[in-house]
Each structure stands twice: as structure tokens, then as C-alpha cells.
Design a protein around this nucleic acid. Structure first.
Length: 144
DNA sequence: GCCAACGTTGGC
DNA sequence: GCCAACGTTGGC
């Protein structure tokens, strides 16, 4: 099966890109998700899948690229067996972070979940969207 | 800081 | 199983 692409949302004050980068190859659990849709997407993730790291709230910008390094497992931050999470590690920062404004201004990206359902914290990204966003971010081609 | 949108909870 | 109430998210 081919690789899938995702988008992970975080608030800078809770978990910043710098925090993620600091974890290095060890990565970190993407814990704390308490939403079934988001959890279900994490269950679909495979090791090696790539994702964008997006900062919500003040920043509203895609700042980097992460890779899934562990598939869905119980979320260590809760006893509730319903909630699972994957582990991800930072791959690289985007040379040019891509803002929500830019995304909204591009008709090719108007179908993005980020635009249509702004509250979903873990979401899929279409191959074409991924390519466009990598370009906008200053990457000639996708990494990895 | 406000508020709309949405998801979850819990009473019935 | 429905739905009103409530809490949270996140853009503005």
C-alpha cells in the first residue's frame, strides 16, 4: 500500500514544534486526543506515513513534517481504553511555513479538512494537497 | 475575548 | 436511542 499523509494539530503552549524537534528520533506519543474521528485516523496510520505539524490558535501555520514511528496503541495519559495514539518524530522544518491564510487563498486547497472542519485535530491530507503544500513550504519535492 | 460549530455526555 | 445541555476548539 502506498504511503498516506496526515496533519497533526497542536497548540504551541501545549506542545510546540521545538518540543517535537527536541525529542529527535525517539519521537513522542501524540497523546491527549479525545475525539473518535481523530483516533480512527490514527488507527489507520502506518509506520513511515508522513504528516504536517500545524500550530493552531495564534500561529495557524504549518511548520514542519513528521513521520509516524509507532502505530496506534493505548494512550498512556488515560486509563480509558477507548483512546489510542501513535508516536511521531520530527523530520524537518518547512523552509517557508505555510499559513492558514495562504491555504484558504488557494482554490486547490479548498477541500482540505483543515478548511472544512477546522476543529478536527488529526486529519488526512490528500496526495495532491501534500505535494502543493510541500511546494508552498519551500520543498521542491516531498522528503523521505 | 467572543462566539459559532461541533462533539460528547447523560437523563429520559 | 434520542436529544438537550454542556464543554471545547479554534478562527476571528
Amino acid at each position: 500500500m502506498s504511503k498516506h499523509y496526515w496533519l497533526f494539530k497542536s497548540e504551541k503552549s501545549t506542545w510546540s514544534w521545538e518540543d517535537q524537534v527536541t525529542q529527535g528520533d525517539a519521537g513522542e506519543e501524540w497523546d491527549g486526543v479525545r475525539n473518535y474521528q481523530a483516533r480512527n485516523f490514527m488507527r489507520e496510520m502506518k509506520v513511515g506515513d508522513l504528516g504536517f505539524f500545524y500550530l493552531s490558535q495564534r500561529d495557524k501555520v504549518i511548520v514542519g513534517i513528521v513521520e509516524v514511528i509507532a502505530e496506534a496503541h493505548p494512550d498512556s495519559t488515560t486509563e480509558d481504553p477507548r483512546w489510542e495514539c501513535v508516536n511521531i518524530k520530527a523530520i524537518r522544518s518547512l523552509p517557508t511555513p505555510v499559513s492558514l491564510d495562504q491555504i484558504k487563498a488557494d482554490p486547490r486547497l479548498s477541500e482540505m479538512v483543515l478548511v472544512k472542519n477546522s476543529r478536527l485535530s488529526v486529519q488526512p491530507v490528500e496526495d495532491e494537497e501534500w505535494r502543493i503544500l510541500c511546494e508552498m513550504g519551500g520543498l521542491a519535492s516531498e522528503p523521505g
